[in-house]
Nucleic acid binder design. Sequence first.
DNA 1: ATTGAAAAATAGCCTTGGCTATACTATCTC
DNA 2: GAGATAGTATAGCCAAGGCTATTTTTCAAT
Lengths: 161, 161
Amino acid sequence: MSKHEKIGPEVESSLINADAQVESFRQTRNNRRTELVEDYVELIADLIEDGGEARQVDIAQRLGVAQPTVAKMLKRLISEGYIQQRRYRGIFLTEAGQKLAELCRERHHIVESFLCSIGVSPETARIDAEGMEHHASAETLEAFKAFLARATPPRRVAGQA
Amino acid sequence: MSKHEKIGPEVESSLINADAQVESFRQTRNNRRTELVEDYVELIADLIEDGGEARQVDIAQRLGVAQPTVAKMLKRLISEGYIQQRRYRGIFLTEAGQKLAELCRERHHIVESFLCSIGVSPETARIDAEGMEHHASAETLEAFKAFLARATPPRRVAGQA
DNA sequence: ATTGAAAAATAGCCTTGGCTATACTATCTC
DNA sequence: GAGATAGTATAGCCAAGGCTATTTTTCAAT
């Protein structure tokens, strides 16, 4: 810590291991950097599936941002290899983009379903899932899935004992 | 949508109501703006409780950022009325700051406990909670709390058949 | 083929939240 | 009380992700 060292037993009130906490915050900051990319890719996949194409204006409208903001972001997506773009033409997902979109969709769906399953209303689940999905680690997602499987015995077809 | 209107029945593949989606994204963007404030206030409260004071260097070390970054952020916290600062002296939480810290801590604790209760390991729960807590609405928190109450029958009181 | 509207590109600005480097106080020690 | 040192303040940089205003291109319709 600071000047007056305090290396003692540590009261451990709410202060956990410092290094661990740093890691949490670091991870959260990193997640934030990739959140937008994921949102874009997921949305683009949805738009293409739904209407055969994803235009900047539609993306902008869906995200609630201005078109130039989308244009700038698309450049980033291109440089990161998730989409391809032909000037004044459409946007296409690359292999990597499709893979990422698939992942995001599944994750999104798991989180949203999970929230619903514990009694959150669909509208709130949608909103909260939008924010939470990017912070759910693989382990947490597995736990969600396991819970869903337990809590939603579809009939009893996919028998689990 | 774009030029070719498409106002029909909408396949509704993955595309939900546009306005609703815009709201989700807007909300998520807004959350991001307050996340940092909350992390700071929560951490400052912890540091004060633990060591009697919260120094910039300690905050910086805990968050994994540089000291000037903290200094800049503290100015924002001051302007938003969460802390007070005496030049070259300590940092103190205002009434509002303490209230916010309390809220964050509780929320944080609920999310972390909840994750643990569904089988997520403590370390992962800590990391994920750090990112998720800011996106959990009041309703979702209530659901988490209710679940915890159900899932953690202090003895066997709240029997479930 | 022209033209006019819609979409995309571009220019240029702002704010936030990072950083380094450096200057300034306080405080502890001698 | 004079220095050294630790902590804080400040200056100035950068990248990301917003915005508005404007230009360029495409496309559809005449």
